[in-house]
Design a protein around this nucleic acid. Structure first.
Length: 440
RNA sequence: GCUCGUGUGGUGUAGUUCGGUCCAUCAUGCCGCCCUUUCGAGGCGGCGACCCGGGUUCAAAUCCCGGCACGAGCACCA
């Protein structure tokens, strides 16, 4: 069996396309079949080679490997022409002016000669109905009087989409077409092209659309980010894959699917028939799940920043912040203060945590900290605890200003751990600087 | 407008085939508490839904009819 994913290179690969591709690919893999990539680049105006490259790159990143060679529709022009010739000979298609459908229909049986500036329409059945037994949606019928004779060859001699697709699917021996349900109406036309060509019709499975958080269909110009942008945001490919899979497909209450398990389980699950709304929050939850599985080495590679050089210091930083990172980006944004002394302090935070007595309290703490000989989080915690006890104040009264002094933020790992990682000299230095700052 | 499809909590879903075991599953999210220290981490608890209206039935999320809403298509785009 064989499936395919057929994007047009008129933009980057967006999240909806990626999911459709994932489904087509999983469908093939779970049935021991092949899935091939076909670039539908017959629209010369809007297609761009750079998008083709971008799309292929995105699939590499996502971990979806297509089988066989990539098919470019633009290479098949002669083949389309040849097939149209035979349809013309058999009287299953006809030459006409292409101005108006009703007028064109008068040429249905005229066998006009193929000339420049003329178009070719294919004859659709005039009676009965066309039935689609969809893998996902079940049986759908449409009355054939709804199907117009549509143009298969333009006045410039090039073939149109609904025709090319069928020829390519036949030539590539596609057995199962898994695609977005924005194509269901096309499918009825295409089924009749298969019939005209006397070819066997593939099975179809139409997956519902993905909607944006506003409930509108996700599209390139409406909120859909490219796969590459999720990568930039620090999303892991396995997380995106897993999230996309769960959008419109489920297997009971299971959430986590990756690697081989994804392929094995795919057959056991069921498709949902209603459109799904994209949720960044849930995607990040999956992302966190997969980040949790990474080793320190792997994280270093993923973060790919000079600061995280796999050395003992940065690896220690990694260990202490990894719990609070939902994305690879978070590792960078939440760790500056480990690498550079804070300089900017948020006024709101300062007003909230710096009280008249803070200077005095922190001075006492500085004294206690500088006496610590063995710089461990336990000893640091003990020093703070002692001070808190001596002053009879809450831990937060001293802990939060200290956190602010060291990190310029109020959100960090345990403050004693931060001190330990920072080392004694840096801690003391930052605390001294901070004291000077708040002195008046 | 015509045609096709879909409607379970904020979101993703289970359950709908063969009506009862569903005062509706799991996850995410949100809220609260705990972790006598922040927190987007962890633990515990809670909130929240069968689109609406009829009908069939002892019994309907599940079956039937009618609305409504949303999505898609109706190109010499793909």
């Amino acid at each position: 069996m064989k499936t395919r994913f057929a994007p047009s290179p008129t933009g980057y690969l967006h999240i909806g396309g990626a999911r459709t591709a994932l489904f087509a690919w999983l469908y093939a893999k779970s049935h021991n079949g092949d899935c091939l990539l076909r670039i539908e680049d017959t629209d010369k105006e809007r297609s761009d080679k750079k998008y083709t490259e971008e799309i292929i790159k995105s699939f590499d990143w996502l971990g979806i490997q297509f089988d066989q060679e990539v098919v470019y529709q633009s290479n098949n022009a002669n083949r389309y022409r040849e097939v149209i010739d035979s349809l013309l000979n058999e009287g299953l298609a006809y030459v006409c002016k292409g101005d108006d459908l009703e007028e064109d229909k008068n040429s249905r049986d005229l066998k006009l000669p193929r000339e420049e500036n003329m178009v070719i329409r294919i004859k659709m059945p005039e009676e009965g109905s066309t039935v689609l037994n969809d893998l996902i949606k079940g049986e759908i019928q449409v009355s054939n009087d709804q199907l117009d004779d549509f143009i298969i060859e333009r006045s410039d001699g090039s073939a149109t989409y609904n025709f090319c697709v069928v020829v390519d699917d036949i030539d590539s021996e596609i057995t199962h077409v898994i695609r977005g349900d924005d194509h269901v109406n096309n499918t009825f036309k295409q089924i009749n092209v298969f019939k005209a060509l006397n070819a066997s019709i593939p099975e179809y499975g139409h997956v519902p659309m993905i909607l944006g958080e506003d409930g509108k269909r996700l599209s390139k110009r409406h909120g859909a980010l490219g796969v590459g942008e999720y990568a930039k945001l620090g999303v892991l490919p396995e997380a995106l894959r897993n999230y996309l899979l769960r959008l419109g497909w489920s297997k009971g209450d299971d959430e986590i699917f990756d690697g081989q398990k994804m392929i094995i389980d795919f057959k056991k699950g069921t498709f949902n028939q209603s459109p799904a709304t994209f949720s960044l929050e849930k995607l990040l939850w999956f992302n966190k799940h997969y980040i949790d599985q990474k080793t320190i080495d792997e994280l270093n590679k993923l973060i790919n920043s000079p600061q995280f050089d796999n050395g003992p210091f940065s690896n220690r930083v990694l260990e202490v912040i990894r719990d609070r990172c939902n994305s690879i980006e978070d590792f960078s944004t939440q760790s500056h203060y480990f690498f550079t002394d804070p300089e900017e302090f948020d006024e709101v935070l300062m007003n909230k945590h710096i009280k008249p007595e803070t200077f005095h309290n922190l001075s006492l703490l500085l004294d206690k900290l500088s006496r610590i000989e063995e710089w461990t989080s336990n000893n640091i915690k003990e020093a703070i605890d002692n001070l808190v006890k001596e002053l009879s104040i809450g831990f937060a009264k001293i802990g939060l200003p200290l956190r602010l002094a060291l990190t310029a933020t109020v959100n960090s790992p345990s403050i004693d751990v931060v001190c330990e990682v920072l080392e004694k000299d840096v801690t003391i230095r930052r605390l001294e600087n901070f004291l000077t700052r708040i002195k008046n």
